Each structure stands twice: as structure tokens, then as C-alpha cells.
Simulated assay, not measured.
Amino acid sequence: MSASTPSEEPVIASITGFQWSSEESVAYEAAIEAINGAVGAYTARIHAERSKAAPDGELVGLWRERRGELAKVREQLDPADHEQIAEVRRRYAALTRQLMED
């Protein structure tokens, strides 16, 4: 049985870089913050509902589910997809405002 010899080149050498402009990095961070704002708004609603004498468990469950969906959106955010970044910023900033106003 022969032992395989490890590659001489480190794995990191095979990873390609991603370059982006200041505007792109700011837009990406703003999209992340928009999602995080919505997560925070759902968290506040969950806390407020659970603090009631008779909390609505279905409502808490729904908000937790939506908060989990936001985590998935955040994970799938592609910094190279400018249209997705712009849409996420618009959609989740508006959602945060709506959740905070209601």
C-alpha cells in the first residue's frame, strides 16, 4: 500500500480573491445592516409579545420563523450581485420601518 504525498502547494493558494470598490463594500454592509435591522425588529416584537400576560404563541412562532428566514437571506447574499444587494437594502429597510411603526 503506497502512501499519498501531500500537495506542496497550500490550499489557500487555490482560493481566488474578490475585489470590490468602496461603494460596493458599503452597499454590501448596508444590505447586511438592513437585514440585521429586521432581525432586531422581529426580536423586539417577540420579546414584547412574550412579556404579555397571555402571549400569542402562534404569533411568536411566526416571527421566529421569519427571523430564521432573514438569516438565510443574509447567508445567501452575494456581494458581487449588485441588483440583489440593492433589492435587499430596499426590501429589508422598508420591512424594519414597517415593523417598528406597527
Rank of each mutant, 00 (worst) to 15 (best):
Y92R: 02
I15C: 09
T5P: 11
L95R: 05
T16Y: 04
R67H: 06
D78T: 10
D78R: 15
A41Y: 07
G17Y: 09
R67G: 03
A53G: 12
K72R: 07
T43P: 10
E87M: 12
E49T: 07
E9V: 13
Q76V: 00
A93D: 09
E65D: 10
E29R: 12
E23V: 00
Y92Q: 02
E23T: 05
G61M: 11
E24A: 08
I12C: 07
T96S: 14
Q84K: 08
E9W: 06
L95E: 08
A44S: 15
S2W: 07
M1Y: 14
E8T: 05
W20F: 10
S21V: 00
R97S: 15
S21G: 05
G68A: 07
E83P: 01
S51R: 14
G40E: 04
R89K: 13
W20H: 10
T43Q: 15
G37P: 07
L99Q: 05
A53I: 10
Q84Y: 01
V60S: 01
D78V: 09
G68K: 03
K72P: 00
E65Y: 04
V26S: 14
R67W: 01
Q19L: 06
D78L: 08
D56L: 05
R50C: 03
K52I: 04
I85N: 01
S22C: 06
A93M: 04
S25A: 11
V39Q: 08
A31W: 00
R64C: 08
W63I: 02
A27R: 04
A30G: 02
S25K: 15
T5M: 14
E24Y: 02
D81F: 04
S14W: 07
Y28Q: 03
W20Q: 13
W63C: 03
A38G: 06
A53Q: 15
I15M: 11
P79M: 10
A3S: 11
E69Q: 12
G40T: 01
Q98Y: 08
R89E: 11
R90T: 08
P6E: 09
A34T: 00
A38F: 04
Q19H: 09
P79D: 07
S21I: 00
P10Q: 07
A30Q: 10
A48H: 12
E49Y: 04
E23G: 03
R91D: 07
V26C: 04
E24L: 02
A93I: 00
R97T: 13
A38Q: 01
E33P: 02
R66P: 03
E75R: 13
S22P: 06
P55A: 04
K72M: 02
T16R: 09
I12N: 14
W63E: 00
Q19N: 12
E49H: 06
E49L: 05
V39C: 06
M100E: 14
E23S: 11
S25E: 14
I12F: 13
E75Q: 12
G61L: 08
L70I: 00
N36Y: 03
E69R: 11
T43H: 15
T96L: 06
P6M: 05
A48F: 06
L99M: 10
H82V: 07
Y42W: 09
